[in-house]
């Protein structure tokens, strides 16, 4: 089992960042922007908020990298570290939103097409939309763990770092979250 989540050329990227943050930073944004946006979108259910959070995450990462000594940058597990920032922004937004339950749900953009044929694709799309809605109704602890594990595809160790929870807790949050989602989907289809 991997201890951290690899991104293409992660070591090269941290090495490049340690060498020259300004030069390597665009590559960091390119490598992680889909990650952050997808996770933020599923946790906020709002494309505008997700884009804002994605941008703000990178701005904060840039500022932090500028202050870190090179060795510290080399030792970073990039995805887990960047998600520490992103998860905080998502949670803050979820908190401020939960006090305003009337907030409108905006339509999520179409998800990536990974299946052949119009009919299975249409079914899968409906299923994904439904699931996206259900995630938003989960308590933060479960929603964040499920999204980081299964949408963003982070390793448990990275999620633990990002959410500042022990690995065991994260695993059980993912497990309980999935259980709840399954139960709700079954309840609806029966």
């Amino acid at each position: 089992m991997t201890t951290t989540t690899p991104i293409p050329d992660a070591t090269t990227l941290t090495a490049a960042l340690a060498e020259d943050v300004d030069r390597a930073f665009p590559a960091l944004v390119r490598a992680l922007q889909d990650d952050i946006y997808s996770g933020a979108l599923r946790l906020t259910r709002d494309p505008h908020a997700a884009q804002d959070i994605t941008q703000e995450t990178f701005l904060r990462a840039y500022t932090a990298l500028g202050l870190y000594p090179p060795q510290r940058i080399r030792d970073l597990s990039l995805r887990g570290w960047v998600w520490t920032i992103a998860a905080n922004l998502c949670r803050n937004r979820a908190r401020s939103r939960s006090r305003k339950p009337e907030a409108a749900l905006e339509a999520a953009p179409p998800v990536a097409d990974r299946r052949p044929g119009p009919e299975p694709e249409a079914m899968a799309s409906i299923e994904r939309d439904r699931l996206a809605d259900l995630i938003g109704d989960l308590p933060w602890a479960m929603a964040s763990a499920v999204v980081l594990r299964h949408v963003v595809d982070l390793a448990y160790e990275d999620i633990a770092e990002a959410l500042d929870r022990p690995v065991g807790t994260v695993k059980s949050d993912v497990h309980r979250g999935l259980q709840r989602l399954r139960a709700q989907l079954e309840e609806e289809s029966s």
């Binding site: 930073f25 944004v29 946006y37 997808s38 941008q55 998800v111 699931l131």
Partner: peptide, 27 residues
């Protein structure tokens, strides 16, 4: 099934993200 569907919830970031970030950082 549910894990496969969750993996399908990954989407590309909007095109504006990279330009906005690079402009805001002054890069």
């Amino acid at each position: 099934q549910i894990e496969t569907t969750l993996a399908g919830l990954r989407v590309p970031a909007p095109h504006g993200v990279l330009p906005n970030v690079l402009a805001a950082t002054g890069l």
